[in-house]
Amino acid sequence: MTAYQADQLVSEYLGRLDEQLADVPRTRRDEILDEISQHIAEERGLLHNKSEADLRNLLDRLGDPAELAAAARDDGDESHEAKESRRIGAIEVLALVLTPLVWPAGVILLWLSPAWNLRDKLIGTLVPPGGYLFILFSPALLLMGTGVTNSCGGTVDSGGNVVNSCTGVLALPVWQQDLINVGLVAIVVVLLVLPVLTAIYLARRLRK
């Protein structure tokens, strides 16, 4: 056998191995191919008579490329497999970012991801009611409400006194107006904080 034929035999073996390793991550595949080809090179150097039979025996001892690829994939450890399936991917990161910001998109991703269980998904969907999208609408709703119902006007009664009268919220005593304002601020703060808390909760569930 010429050196050229021997090289052919080896590169054919490595080619088959590369094919079989197709679904193994690139860096690991390169590492395995690199190590195997170095091993073959070293063992070939040790062969006494460089016959085709010796080289074929060498490759046979290494094993069938399909068997080697199976060893690269096989985890043999279920807990590790479970960890892998809950690995944090692009969907999970996007879901975390979008759930508070662009609520419908975030929630769709949340439900698509296998990383959360049903309870987490329900919390992510329901706790920030509509995420920040809701908050964008809520001041508008409030303004509309006050705009329609609140008005003050002064009129002059028969005795020549100016009488101020108000309707809506502004008709209430000042302490009650303050109470309502404090309540509104509290609601806005809660609505701002809740989506963030939900995102933090979901992120923590992801790590488990």
Partner: peptide
Amino acid sequence: GGELIQLMRSQDGLLTSEGTIYPLLSR
């Protein structure tokens, strides 16, 4: 890797396809 394979050779039945040591190490 080659050293591990040599050690394995003296242990009967432990390593049937020598090449599997490399995917194993990589894993």
